[in-house]
Design a protein around this nucleic acid. Sequence first.
RNA 1: GUCGCCUUCGUCUAUCGGUUAGGACCCCAGGUUUUCAUCCUGGUAAGAGGAGUUCGAUUCUCCUAGGCGAUGCCA
Length: 460
Amino acid sequence: MKSRFAPSPTGYLHIGGARTALFAWAWAKKQKGQFVLRIEDTDRERSTQASVDAILDGMAWLGLTHDEGPFYQTDRFERYKEIIERLLGEDKAYYCECSKERLQVLRDELTEKGEKAKYDGCCRDKNLSAGVVRFKNPLEGFVAFDDAVKGQISIGNKELDDLIIARSDATPTYNLTVVVDDHDMDIDTVIRGDDHINNTPRQINLYKALSWDLPKFAHLPMILGSDGARLSKRHGAVSVMAYRDEGFLPEALLNYLVRLGWSHGDQEVFSLKEIVELFELKNINKAPASFNQEKLIWLNQEYIKSSSVDHLLKNLAWHLENQSIDVSNGPAIELVVEHLQERSKTLVEMVDGLKMFYQDFDQFDEKLSAKQFKDSQSIELLFTKLNTLDDWAAGNIKEQIKQVCDELDIGFGKIGQPFRLALSGNGNAGNIDVVAQLVGKKRTLARLQMALDYISQYSH
RNA sequence: GUCGCCUUCGUCUAUCGGUUAGGACCCCAGGUUUUCAUCCUGGUAAGAGGAGUUCGAUUCUCCUAGGCGAUGCCA
């Protein structure tokens, strides 16, 4: 059993393509079959190597590894040519010399009359020997197929026209190349976006003309933006790699994507292993789904909370480098990550939270410092006590804070909040004693001194 | 215009003729908590509209509306 993902390299790997790839991948793995990657680059005008690389990068980041390929259609032009010639020779295709202008006029006329704009077969019986090559689509009857997700679909051949299978420069077009490739590569389930439903009957006619067995078809509904419109840049990130940049874990994105249009009862969280085990084409929804960033964030947080520190570290590496954070200059990164695990929705947030342990800052958050740094007495006392603390451990630090509270007869918050701000600069810190321990004695004292300086500076 | 596909809470979805229409995200209200976060409890919120089939329709059929797609020498 084989399934495939066949993107055209005209841009980065986007969310919709990633989901198509995921479904095709999951189905192949579930069947213990092969997943084929094929680059559909017959449109040389728009295909770029940069796009190919971007797609490969995206697939690699997601971990959707292919078992065969990547195959490039531009490497297979000889084969397509062979098939086109065969069709020509069997009188199942013909050359057409109609100009683009004539075609446009024809379309306009038909549209105006309220009819379907399709080619009129003008050159069908002219026996020409140059121009584009058109496939002789059957004139009568209908094409029907049983789509694995949409069910029975049928369309009359009268709605179809003689599609172009080779351009005037002799390069083959999409509808021909997919058929040849899916056949040659032994693909038995074609999983793709439902924008291809309209192409399927044409392709089926091609299969029949070539006397080839039909694969199964599974057409996935589109992914829409939050406003129900087709997903585009204005909805935010559409590129898969942008999600890495924003701090998402690949398995969180995959989990989100698999639940978009597919379900297994009420289950929300699926490991990759579970996706493969539980995936069924029949549980794919027919209706398009809207992308909802909130739920993705929730899932990402779930994954961050339940991931091993080691796994997080692997995914964090890129972000640390991206932001040039040197973690050798501070506490063990493992401890910091563990501390931040429960309070980070994304890896980017985690990196933000991690900065205070490795980088010094030269000023406090303005609003918060005006509010928290009013009384120097408690901070001074805390400074003194911590300064003489030898065993710099969270429990001991906590003890010192409590002593300050007792001696000054104030609540924990009175000193805890200013201390938190002094340590972090922005007030975002978890258990204050643990944070102080991780920040280290030297840095902690320096920051408390900085807070004291701030107070003396603004008190007169 | 024509053809095709689609239609359950704001969003993702469950339901395989009989349910107080369930779950999740978001949001709201409580509780736990040394801020934040986590965690726990609870709450708001849905079958596009209209016919028909049936003892009974969210579920089956048809119509309408709306959305999306196709209508390329793009894929």
